[in-house]
């Protein structure tokens, strides 16, 4: 896996991003000098970012820092921008809410928008990949939250994307479903080998899944770190805890305690959900 051969941790981000953009043989995403303003207020302000093909990048940030705006720009949904944005033609998005068309059965939702006349088999194969083949003919209203989210993932995967954009896809799931969904995404990524950009406010989730974690603040990538931990990752690993503490610090969660590795279940757990703690309304 691509976790152990990465370069040193880059502290100075803009500088490093500029370097890698020049040096990398190919890139799944290349963003330079991106600005996106709402009513004169720059939410994304001179942002530079390069994602390597097949790389799993987690984008962290407080709520309102512009991380979802960046994802929408990369998805091509927001084009009122300045600067240079290069993304693969084949890209797919999974949103926080599954956003299935309620008037289409699950398999028709999966193949919606595919060129030509895709058959049911195409949809069922994608649904099988997320363990939902048996619900192909169901109406979306009959799916549970986790199933709907997996259907949404299948809808993204069936497009065979070179870049998969995930906008807090686990945010609305309960804790148990979330763990399974995270495992599923990890499996799918390892099998498909596509680049993934995961927007999340959950530091733990970022560290479990990503090759590289970015922290967005002030409209740009304010901090980034390689997550050079062996997979599958263990949150009780002391290196994991150290990375988490560092990222929480960068996210502005002051005095986040680093739990001692021998007592991972101490009564004062690290506040892993920094964004949610900021306003308490991140999940609908």
């Amino acid at each position: 896996m691509a976790t152990d051969l990465h370069g040193p941790v880059n502290e100075s981000v803009r500088h490093a991003a500029g370097q890698s953009a020049g040096a990398a043989p190919g890139a799944a995403v290349r963003v330079g000098g991106l600005v996106r303003s709402f009513d004169g207020r720059a939410v994304v302000d001179d942002l530079h970012l390069t994602v390597r093909p097949g790389e799993f990048v987690a984008l962290l940030g407080r709520s309102g820092c512009g991380k979802s705006t960046l994802l929408r720009v990369l998805a091509g949904l927001d084009r009122e921008i300045e600067g240079e944005v290069l993304v693969p033609r084949r890209k797919a998005v999974a949103f926080q809410a599954p956003r299935l068309m309620p008037w289409k059965r699950v398999w028709r939702n999966v193949v919606l928008g595919l060129p030509g006349r895709p058959d049911r088999g195409t949809a069922v194969r994608a649904l099988d990949e997320v363990g939902l083949g048996h619900r192909a003919d169901a109406w979306p209203k009959t799916l549970s939250g986790g199933e709907a989210q997996r259907a949404s993932l299948a809808r993204a995967l069936v497009r065979e994307p070179d870049l998969l954009l995930l906008d807090e896809p686990f945010g609305a799931l309960d804790a148990l479903t979330r763990i399974r969904a995270q495992q599923l995404v990890a499996e799918v990524w390892q099998r498909r080998g596509c680049a993934v950009l995961l927007v999340t406010h959950d530091v733990e989730e970022a560290l479990l899944l990503a090759d590289r974690a970015l922290v967005m603040a002030g409209g740009r990538i304010a901090y980034e770190t390689e997550v050079a931990l062996p997979r599958p990752r263990d949150s009780s690993d002391p290196r994991f805890a150290a990375l988490r503490a560092r990222l929480l610090d960068r996210l502005g969660v002051a005095g986040a305690p680093v739990p001692p590795p021998e007592q991972p279940q101490s009564p004062a757990p690290a506040r892993a959900h920094a964004g949610a703690d900021e306003n308490g309304t991140d999940t609908p």
Binding site: G76, L77, A92
Partner: peptide, 26 residues
């Protein structure tokens, strides 16, 4: 948000009307 999802799936304007807007207006 459904219209946006349809756009992200690569639906054209006609496709959006046919698969998203009209069924939603039913």
């Amino acid at each position: 948000r459904l219209v946006e999802a349809g756009t992200s799936l690569g639906l054209s304007r006609r496709g959006l009307i046919r698969h998203v807007v009209l069924p939603g207006a039913l």
